[in-house]
Design a protein around this nucleic acid. Structure first.
Lengths: 156, 156
DNA sequence: GAGGCTGGGTTGCTATGTCAAACCCTGATA
DNA sequence: TATCAGGGTTTGACATAGCAACCCAGCCTC
């Protein structure tokens, strides 16, 4: 049997950026509106040095950008804002959140819901076929080596 | 201003299970068809003790199940299969994969594509409004505290 | 102009997690 | 009886995380 090496696949590349401990929680807070170091620190609850490191990594990969701002009577400071690349992670974040709600949820219900800004209805994440646009589950799908894959022999 | 504490939100709970280093790569291989310890070890590329630990954690949280099997002329062994709860993570996995493809992709193209088993078209993940089912992006959404949230004062 | 406050970090020490390689255990086969 | 393969566990060196204490620049007050 010939399978494919997924050694350096996009999942790995994505995780190299957002797969470290705390990073996803930092992003969650960014989506919820946090912008300043102290806000992230309070809400994420990780050590300051770790937060500092994670913010720098995210800025380095252009998931966040460091924007200077100045409040009246204050010196110039910086805040962290999601870039387009960062905002594009919302799909993955909500997918994870909904999985958590469904399988590890509190009886009290979800702590946060993500709503459509225009109409207030909850947002959902669906896996669907790009052809007929029908919603799918895992058993309806099959992986295939893509153009960038290297073929490798796989036992059995 | 009053915000909400997301301290123990579903994202955190989900990450407590699948947020450790290597775990998502183990799941990726499970979706691609790996079932046995050696297969995971070869394809994921992490140390054996770490793999052992991650598989045990996933089995403990019922994301994978450990199923005995016996090949002719072999002694009984165990394999790891995705449960319903595990298969339900495909949405998050594909969301992450597509993000990786889009923003960190190889010029050669994606290494793996996930297809609709029935028709062979690529699978996509979309964020959409549960009311009108229109596809959304981050700017179309807004988070709201859910029933399980605790209200906390938030500066600014 | 000395001192204090605040946001935004950095330093240093300890605790925990990761890596790689070696080792072990269990049935099946020779 | 020895050997082999799958499926792990143990060991010891190294890297990362956690926590508390500290720093530092600019602004404000006295």
């Amino acid at each position: 049997m010939v399978g494919f090496s997924a050694e350096h696949c996009s999942v790995k590349r994505a995780l190299d950026i957002v797969g470290e401990k705390w990073t996803f929680l930092v992003l969650r807070e960014a989506f919820y509106g946090a912008r300043r170091f102290e806000q992230f620190h309070e809400r994420v609850g990780c050590a300051r040095n770790i937060l500092s490191d994670r913010l720098a990594t995210l800025v380095g990969h252009e998931v966040l950008e460091r924007v200077p701002y100045r409040e009246p009577g204050q010196r110039e400071r910086h805040e962290y804002r999601l870039t387009e690349k960062g905002r594009d992670l919302l799909t993955a974040l909500v997918a994870l959140m909904h999985w958590g709600d469904r399988w590890e949820g509190d009886e009290a219900g979800p702590t946060v819901e993500v709503l459509h800004r225009a109409c207030g209805s909850p947002v959902e994440v669906v896996l669907r076929c790009s052809h007929d646009h029908e919603p799918l589950t895992a058993v309806d799908t099959v992986p295939r080596a893509g153009r960038g894959a290297r073929q490798v022999p796989v036992s059995r």
